[in-house]
Nucleic acid binder design. Structure first.
Length: 1016
RNA sequence: GGGUGAUUAGCUCAGUGGUAGAGCGCUUCGUUCACAUCGAAGAUGUCGGGGGUUCAAAUCCCUCAUCACCCACCA
């Protein structure tokens, strides 16, 4: 059956995908012919997600490497899977609940909600897979992994032990003291009501204000305030009874614990140690706070004095910690001003006692609510506005003199106005919620990254892991060398629940039921936690504690028993019941995806796959998750199994729209890869991103470019169709054997060109130069095979070398299918299948390795000569407006032996492609002819009466001019003794050759011009 | 404030020391049998500015300009 005129991608891709799938073509180890392995882990897409262009790009590159290695006989694994993506998924499900008008998360309760998210996950499980299959990704789907597989509550079909791996790592790191719980200032997302890590915060510049307020000195004290300029000249001297403070967040003044100045700041030296009053809140309860010194304040900025609100600012927190200043939490989990019913007056007096030196525990300080009644329950921003209004009304805002001249009377009016600066401020936003992040003092779990970071740094320094392009190594090092503790607890429901159980701490006089539990037991199961707790309690209160099941929740065991308490001399037995409860928080998603390389291979079990495919070879990922994911995988794999997770990290850039804008839903410039695949076919989309994948550069995607590469597929299709029409296909043997000792130069030449293409493709892929591989193959297939070899074959098919030409063409085209297959798997597989009865899938055909022995240099030289002759004739004809269809007779006026031999061997080719019908040798150039000069020969096309002499003259002059320009350059270089002396020999040689050639040509052109003068 | 990258044909971009390339677009010509999603021919660049190193610079160094991104606590 003759081939269709075009490849029908829409029809064929699904069929081919199904064929690969049915054959199990991509299973780990499929087509392995030697023991060497190649493994690559997909960066797991979010389970709720859709494939976007970044995924299409990323997965195309992974697929190219995977297919290439599989064809080369490696034991290959491309591990697919998805990430549970805690915040993102919880957000999606909550939004869907809201849209459907169903009860929200909190109304549903945790168990029901998590069940609902699992349903969502199962529903969308096929989504990502289907999208990747449409792209042609050759993942081993039988091994599909999920970062929460095997977690409690997982439905049937979601078995697996990823959860076990995560829990085990948490427990192990905790046991080693690498994970700890602490009350620290963290980034708090008021929308999701959870802590997030530093990396999940985006700093954005917004318009804000800086207010300047007066904090009056306690007891009406005054001091001499002196300001000097750079030269030490006094610019201001006044008596003040206050200290001036600048702030962008007046609402946090309610939680101030101190005012800090720089120790070297002479302006304030006299008042350091004194108390000042926070100028807000009920007058009778105004709080006094100390003026302290710390290196943090910058004397040249603002007034040089900084209010210290340890619970709501990262810098202030540091100052507070260093100086023993209490941190008062002012807001609730939604970032509204605390409204808990506790009386303000009492809180203010407690705070005052702390200033006076009273000792309070952190928990006690945390319980103090210093928000006055009128601000309670307000949004941060509203509270800010009210505070500013109140202070201003009271006259405690710093003011400046404003001069106004009355237009009518000309009277000067001097008034004081509040000093408020409009200011660009960097404000933190949640990367998911997009709401303003509030620093909050909460209890969280942290990984002590400082203790596990060094191996991750060393591994890249020692090149056990190579990061490409190299510029990213610097970024990697910089981040790791300045690493902060990693907050891994999230107050969410969708995720791995933290394997820690809390229990109250028994004291000598019984059990102190401390809120939150003051003892914690970290264990992989509640049973283990129970044992640990029991053992611990028994040490403290020997022999008196027993354990009993908790009827309400067996996973929260209750301990009961008689405890000796009271005065040891008169002991009293007291009955107590203690219930262990599990930490409700879940782990940061990246904690589990950080274990992706080993987790997907079955760790902690020592599976054969773990043995074989770990460490993996390559990780291909975007630069945006180097910190989130790459660095953490490095740290965690090294900490857990003491090996690097991958040998090479290839970091690719961003896919942007054609204007260079980042694709985003809000801009509406998102190109959906599936739409593009529908329109142009997967191969075209793949080839496009591959051709644009220059290392480290963003790529701007335009449809024109994709259409161009779609045409490339069509071109290959039609070259094959031509071959088929000429009896080249179908072939009997598969793959087609390489023709032995062909006679036609064109056949020898294309075999060499093919060998070069193989070598270049291999070299490019080995160095991750995907764009070079793609553009090199494009140039080979279109520029050499289609443009020239197919054209050469036409006359050869009518000649004595017809059979060897068929053999050669079958071989060459099959090599094209093979070489292009990693980039364009569908069209090549289809061509492979329809051009013969194939035993193997193209996806499993052996990748060639010919070396350059197949290159026949003489044939190469000869074909270059033939091609340049044809081009010269065509060019001359076109410029002289010779009708394209007109067959011409040609004369040779000069013809050396090698040129003559080349002509003789390729006469049929040249005649056909240049539309020449005869060649005779003459001594004299016929009148009215155009000249064609090539190496070793000069030809003329007699066109008396047809050509315009003036036009031919100008054509020749133009050509001559160009060559002479080159010639001069070459000559001056060779005339420079230093050049001949210093330049490498081959460069000098090359230059000499070029000069000789140019000399020859100019001579011929000059001669031709002279002849035109004669007749003209 | 620190860091990284970019600046090459009308557009989008390749090009790590030997006198500039591709795709798209543009101009002219061409449908007899692989392909009009095509073919043939053609035009277009002091490689951001300035300086330096070198026999030789788009390429290496310095500097300036513009743009982009990343990191960072200036109240």
């Amino acid at each position: 059956m003759p081939m269709e005129k075009n490849f029908d991608a829409a029809e064929a891709e699904a069929r081919i995908s199904a064929m690969w799938d049915k054959a199990g073509a991509f299973k780990a180890g499929a087509n392995a012919s030697h023991a060497e392995t190649f493994s690559i882990m997909i960066p797991p897409p979010n389970v709720t997600g859709n494939l976007h262009m970044g995924h299409a790009f990323n997965n195309t590159l992974q697929d190219i490497l995977t297919r290439w290695h599989r064809m080369r006989g490696f034991d290959t694994l491309w591990q697919p899977g998805t990430d549970h993506a805690g915040i993102a998924t919880q957000m999606v499900v909550e939004r869907e609940l809201a849209q459907a008008g169903e009860p929200g998360r909190r109304e549903m309760g945790r168990e029901a909600f998590v069940k609902r998210v699992w349903q969502q996950k199962v529903k969308s499980r096929g989504n990502i897979k289907g999208q990747l299959e449409r792209l042609g990704a050759s993942c081993d789907w039988s091994r599909e992994a999920f970062t929460m597989s095997g977690a409690p509550g997982a439905p049937a079909g979601e078995e697996g032990n990823f959860h076990d791996a995560v829990i085990k790592v948490f427990v192990d790191l905790h046991t080693k003291g690498l994970i700890y719980r602490g009350k620290r200032l963290v980034n708090w997302d008021p929308h999701f009501e959870t802590a997030i890590s530093d990396l999940e915060v985006e700093q954005t510049e917004v318009d804000g204000f800086m207010w300047h307020f007066k904090y009056p000195l306690a007891g009406g004290e005054t001091y001499e305030y002196v300001e000097k300029d750079e030269d030490g000249k006094v610019t201001l001297r006044e008596t003040r009874d206050y200290i001036s403070i600048a702030t962008t967040r007046p609402e946090t003044m309610l939680g101030d614990g101190a005012v800090a100045v720089h120790p070297g700041d002479a302006r304030y030296a006299a008042i350091v140690g004194m108390l000042c009053e926070i100028p807000v809140g009920p007058k009778q309860h105004r709080r006094l706070i100390p003026i302290i010194t710390d290196d943090y304040p910058d004397p040249t900025f603002g007034s040089g004095a900084v209010k210290i609100t340890g619970a709501h600012d990262f810098n202030d927190y540091g100052v507070a910690k260093r100086n023993g200043i209490p941190c008062y939490r002012l807001m609730d989990t939604k970032a509204y001003m605390r409204d808990d019913g506790a009386p303000y007056a009492e809180a203010a007096s407690l705070a005052q006692r702390i200033v006076e030196g009273a000792d309070f525990t952190e928990a006690e300080i945390d319980a103090i609510n210093l928000v006055p009644d009128e601000y309670r329950g307000l949004d941060r921003l509203i509270a800010r506005k009210r505070v500013v209004e109140a202070i201003t009304a009271e006259g405690l805002a710093v003011t400046y003199l404003h001069k106004e001249i009355d237009a009518e009377t000309g009277a000067e009016d001097l008034s004081r106005r509040p000093f408020v600066e409009a200011k660009k401020i960097m404000q933190p936003f949640g990367d998911r919620s997009k709401v303003v992040i509030e620093p909050m003092l909460t209890d969280q779990w942290f990984v002590d990254t400082a203790k596990i970071v060094q191996p991750a740094i060393d591994a890249v320094r020692d090149v056990r892991t190579k990061i490409l392009p190299e510029q990213h190594e610097k970024v990697y090092f910089h981040w790791l060398e300045n690493i902060e503790p990693w907050c891994i607890s999230r107050q969410l429901w969708w995720g791995h629940q933290i394997p820690v159980w809390y229990g109250p701490k028994p004291t000598a006089d019984g059990v102190a039921a401390v809120a939150g539990g003051s003892l914690h037991f970290c264990a992989t199961t509640w049973q283990d936690a129970k044992e640990k707790a029991l053992a611990h309690y028994q040490t403290i209160v020997p022999g008196k504690i027993t354990v009993s099941e908790n009827r309400d929740n067996r996973e929260q065991p209750t301990f009961g028993g008689l405890i000796r308490s009271g005065d040891p001399s008169k002991p009293k037995l007291q009955r107590v019941n203690v219930t262990l409860f599990r930490d409700p928080d879940v782990l940061d998603t990246w904690f589990s995806s950080g274990l992706w390389p080993i987790g997907t291979l079955g760790w902690p079990e020592q599976t054969p796959e773990l043995e074989k495919y770990f460490p993996t070879d390559v990780l291909i990922t975007g630069f945006d998750i180097i910190f989130f994911w790459v660095a953490r995988m490095m740290m965690m794999q090294l900490a857990v199994v003491d090996q690097v997770p991958f040998h090479t990290v290839y970091v690719h850039a961003l896919v942007r729209d054609e204007k260079g804008k980042k694709m985003s839903k809000s801009l509406g410039n998102v190109l959906d890869p599936l739409d593009l695949i529908d329109e142009f076919g997967a191969d075209a989309v793949r080839f496009t991103v591959t051709a644009m994948a220059a290392m480290g550069r963003d790529l701007k995607l335009s449809k024109d470019r994709i259409a161009g590469y779609r045409n490339f597929g069509t071109k290959l299709w039609n070259a094959t169709r031509f071959a088929e029409m000429n009896g080249v296909f179908p072939v009997a043997a598969t793959p087609s054997p390489r023709p032995e000792a062909p006679k036609a130069t064109a056949n020898k030449w294309i075999i060499g060109e093919t060998a070069r293409a193989v070598a270049e493709t291999d070299a490019a892929l080995a160095e991750f130069r995907f764009n070079d591989a793609a553009t090199g193959l494009y140039a080979f297939v279109w520029g050499r095979v289609c443009d020239w070899y197919v054209e050469f074959a036409k006359p050869l098919f009518d000649g004595p070398e017809a059979q060897e030409t068929r053999t050669t063409m079958a071989w060459v085209l099959e090599q094209c299918f093979i070489l292009l297959h990693p980039i364009m798997p569908f069209v090549t597989e289809e061509l492979w299948q329809i051009t013969g009865t194939r035993e193997k899938l193209l996806a499993h055909v052996d990748w060639p390795d010919y070396g350059i022995d197949l290159v026949d240099e003489a044939a190469e030289r000869e074909m270059r000569w033939v091609i340049s002759l044809i081009e010269e004739i065509r060019s001359a004809r076109a410029q002289m407006h010779v009708p394209a269809g007109l067959q011409l007779a040609m004369v040779a006026t000069q013809f050396d032996a090698p040129a003559r031999a080349a002509w003789d061997r390729n006469e049929a080719l040249i005649n056909r492609l240049a539309r020449i019908d005869s060649l005779i040798e003459v001594k004299a150039v016929p009148k009215g002819s155009i000249t064609v000069a090539v190496e070793g020969a000069t030809f003329a096309l007699p066109l008396a009466g047809v050509i315009d002499v003036a036009e031919e003259k100008s054509r020749l002059s133009k050509t001559l001019e160009k060559i002479e320009k080159d010639l001069n350059g070459l000559r001056s270089r060779l005339n420079n003794p230093k050049f001949v002396e210093s330049a490498p020999d081959d460069v000098v040689e090359d230059t000499r050759d070029k000069l000789a050639l140019a000399d020859e040509e100019t001579a011929k052109l000059r001669a031709a011009l002279r002849r035109l003068d004669d007749i003209g």
